Simulated assay, not measured.
Amino acid sequence: MTLRPAPLLALLLGLGVAGVVAGVLFGSTGWSDLGDDTMSVILWEIRLPRSLGAWCAGALLGLAGALSQGLFRNPLADPYLLGSAAGAELAVALTLAFTGASAAHASLLAEIGLTGLAFAGTLAGVGLTLLLARGAEQTLRLLLAGVVVGVVLNALTHLVSLWTPDILRAMQAFMLGNTGMLGWNSVAVMAATGLVAGAIGWLGSPALDALTLGEATATSLGIRLPLARLLLILAFAMATGAAVAQTGIIAFVGLAAPHLVRTLCPMLHGWLILLSAAAGGALLLAADVLARALIRPQELPVGLVTALLGGAYLTLLMHRRGVLRK
């Protein structure tokens, strides 16, 4: 089935609206009674910002996934490719270990916030990758540097966890993804970051289109590849950092959303970036509602749900294309 970009965008946004309504009305205890005063507070002050925040986080990851796949010309590239997730994990682990050392340090966490430090860790991981790769000139060098930085930072995170095992439970919640703490401030931060990152990505979409023809052709068309790569890396690092800082590590949304959009509607990167964001928002919001429903009154980590659904989708995609039959 092939759709045109505009109707597909309308469909994805409609699914997002339906997901927000379902997220507001449906909680871990089932469907809610709108006439109850206490329940009204829960709906508008807890569930509505959580649902909008889940959509924003998914949109950021879908946007980042489209940018990274276009930038590296690799359909398996995801937003965590350049050490962003590893940097966020290490920052969270160090913060939890540091603030747990004494009560005096707890004020630091209260002032800066765990989300701010996770965002800083994401940017630091990407910055280390760029430093190791000596800039953004060589795609292969960037990919290898991202792998090295990710492995080293993950090893340091495990080392910190071994030294301070009390942080393991909090780290597990961060690494499996969690939308339960999202509020109106989270929605505002992610929406603002998404607008900035989306604008940079849209302005850089002609460079991504040119890159599909090869680096030599893109250069001959007047594209300044090092500058374009640097700006696009900044855009998807900002988007990834904002999502990870607010919700933790959520798997497969940034990888699956661009795949789904390209399957339904082949297009240039200007539309792909916008549609991948809408698809990512709808996917994460659906996973969040499902995470509340499966084992209620308890909730599954939303990252676990997205990993299972994303893995099933990519396996089906590989089977349809005959990869698993060869």
Rank of each mutant, 00 (worst) to 15 (best):
R47I: 02
L308F: 14
G27N: 04
D209G: 03
V21D: 02
V20Y: 04
G125V: 08
L153D: 01
T263V: 10
L272G: 02
N185W: 14
S40C: 00
N185I: 08
R141L: 13
F236K: 02
L130D: 00
H319M: 13
R141M: 12
V152L: 15
G146A: 05
G194D: 07
W202F: 15
F252G: 07
A101W: 15
A192S: 12
D78E: 15
L314W: 13
A207W: 02
V261Q: 08
P266Y: 12
I112Q: 11
D78T: 13
A251Q: 13
M318L: 14
T38V: 01
G222T: 07
S186P: 08
L208P: 00
S220M: 15
L13G: 05
A245E: 09
G121H: 05
N74D: 11
L230E: 12
A18C: 12
V261A: 07
P266I: 08
I249D: 08
L12C: 02
P5F: 13
A66H: 05
G270F: 14
I223Y: 08
A243M: 04
M171Q: 11
G322W: 15
V41E: 12
A54W: 05
A57E: 01
A170Q: 15
W184F: 10
T217C: 03
A210R: 01
V289Y: 03
Q298I: 09
A64W: 01
D78L: 07
S186W: 09
A64H: 07
L231Y: 10
T247W: 09
L114H: 13
L272V: 03
R141S: 15
L213M: 14
G65C: 00
A237V: 03
A77N: 01
A136E: 00
V92W: 09
A10P: 02
A287K: 03
L94H: 09
L60P: 04
A170W: 06
V24E: 01
M190N: 03
A124W: 10
L34E: 06
L34A: 12
D37C: 02
G30Y: 05
L12S: 03
A307P: 06
F98T: 15
L255A: 05
P301Y: 11
A197E: 06
R262T: 04
A207C: 02
W271F: 14
L290K: 02
L324G: 08
A287N: 03
L211H: 07
L203H: 11
G87T: 02
G180D: 14
N178R: 14
A243Y: 03
A307C: 08
L60A: 07
G19D: 01
V126M: 06
P206A: 05
L143E: 07
L195P: 04
G310C: 08
L283K: 00
L8W: 09
A22G: 10
L314S: 06
